[in-house]
Amino acid sequence: MGIFQMTKTVLRNLAGGPATRQYPAVPARTGPLTRGHVVFDPATCRSCSLCSKRCPCEAIRLDKEAKVWEIDRMRCIACGDCVESCPFGSLAMEPEYFSPVVEHVVERYTITYVKPEKPAKKPADESAGA
């Protein structure tokens, strides 16, 4: 008879524990690759603006003159394209999801990277380069 097909599963479920977890008391399951949120390191950014050019949702804005790097968390879709494109490793993807907010705030960082002093070149080299 085909009316007790579910019985086996029901009995197994009775014996086993719950399949869900008590979120947020128990944190959500994440893996090492989980795309949670982007973090920025202002000390290494050289203002190449690749991240803001690649961003598909225009969440990142960079002002080279003012040395300001901004991210709008509400626009960001955590695709990770900026992290992959950054040639200096200033961006990283953390597995934790960004906590909920009640206000629309654009996160702003001031870039603190200082260009290292180049060893003084001979005047002859400079004219050759120009």
């Binding site: 399951r29 893996g31 690759l33 989980t34 795309r35 879709i77 695709c79 993807m93």
Partner: peptide, 10 residues
């Protein structure tokens, strides 16, 4: 999917 790609549905 999350372990291999980093996203559950996307």
């Amino acid at each position: 999917l999350e372990d291999t790609t980093g996203g559950r549905v996307i």
